[in-house]
């Protein structure tokens, strides 16, 4: 009996030793040299693997950072300037400051604003619906409301509002990785400069139709009238294909354009309420 135990022990140990030798040999023979800096840089990154930097994941981004000499075009939207400063320290370089951005949904086609003209009964995937037809309303540019952008968001920064049937971005959670921008088949979501207190003014419409049909399809469509462009002192507003666009890098958030918009396509968010004309006059009188 004891011999059986002995043989078992010996044979198993022998097997173990042989396997260990093989593994050691293979590991040393096929070792791939990797810059240890890559590991260090990767550790400094947020490990979200969101692809917001344009690389497949944080590891690839770290490799690119180590390989390149400058930080030009390389930035981590999730970690922002802090992370990039950390990376710069590891690599012994200077990191340029990048202005933080935030995603904005440029469609306000709630059921109240945009009348439904058909009913979609297919797979709940925006790209499938987009390739099939113009969508449930007469607007062929606006949000389809099937939430592919929400599915694409890795940071729980988006949800579908069941009342407006539009996606909503939670500013505090949005890291501007751009996943939703890529997911949207209609290019409705835009990454805009993040302003103080998350204030934003933007044209909440992407309809390129002429005024008449655009207005017919949606009550708050941009009709490309150009009034906002006229009042803008900073050349921030351009009009192309019957559609106004406010460049967030030029906009100074002066709030002049919003009141002149005849359809209410320009939205102001996170601003204190405007003083009405009466209170303004009253204030004047007091002064």
């Amino acid at each position: 009996m004891s011999s059986v135990v002995l043989i078992t022990i010996i044979s198993l140990s022998l097997l173990g030793v042989i396997a260990a030798l093989i593994l050691y040999f293979v590991a040393s023979k096929f070792k791939v040299y990797e810059d240890p800096l890559i590991d260090e840089v990767e550790a400094a990154l947020p490990a979200a693997n969101c692809g917001g930097c344009g690389f497949a994941g944080c590891r690839n981004f770290a490799e690119a950072l180590v390989k390149s000499d400058t930080f030009e075009g390389l930035s981590c939207p999730v970690g922002g300037n802090e992370t990039m400063a950390l990376v710069a320290k590891i690599l012994g370089r200077e990191a340029p400051e990048v202005e933080p951005r935030v995603a904005v949904v440029r469609c306000n086609g709630t059921p109240g604003h945009r009348k439904k003209t058909s009913r979609y009964d297919g797979e709940l995937n925006c790209t499938i619906a987009h390739n099939l037809y113009r969508g449930e309303t007469d607007c062929q540019y606006g949000c389809l409301g099937l939430g592919e952008c929400v599915d694409a968001c890795d940071f729980d920064a988006m949800y579908m509002d069941s009342k407006t049937e539009l996606p909503v971005i939670i500013d505090d959670k949005c890291v501007a990785c751009g996943a939703c921008v890529r997911a949207c088949p209609r290019d409705i979501i835009e990454l805009r400069k993040r302003a103080r207190k998350d204030r934003k003014i933007f044209v909440s419409c992407v309809n390129k139709d002429k005024g008449g049909p655009a207005r017919k399809a949606c009550a708050v469509a941009c009709i490309g009238c150009g009034k906002c462009q006229e009042v803008c002192n900073f050349d921030a507003i351009t009009i192309e294909n019957n559609l106004a666009f406010i460049d967030s890098d030029k906009c100074k958030l002066c709030r002049k354009c919003e009141p002149v918009c005849p359809t209410g396509a320009i939205l102001e968010i996170n601003f204190p309420p405007r003083k009405s004309e009466q209170t303004k006059e009253a204030e004047k009188a007091e002064a």
């Binding site: 439904k116 058909s118 009913r119 979609y120 009964d121 297919g122 797979e123 099939l132 037809y133 449930e136």
Partner: peptide
């Protein structure tokens, strides 16, 4: 009634 649209 709205018409239903779905892929073939």
């Amino acid at each position: 009634k709205l018409l239903t649209v779905s892929p073939s």
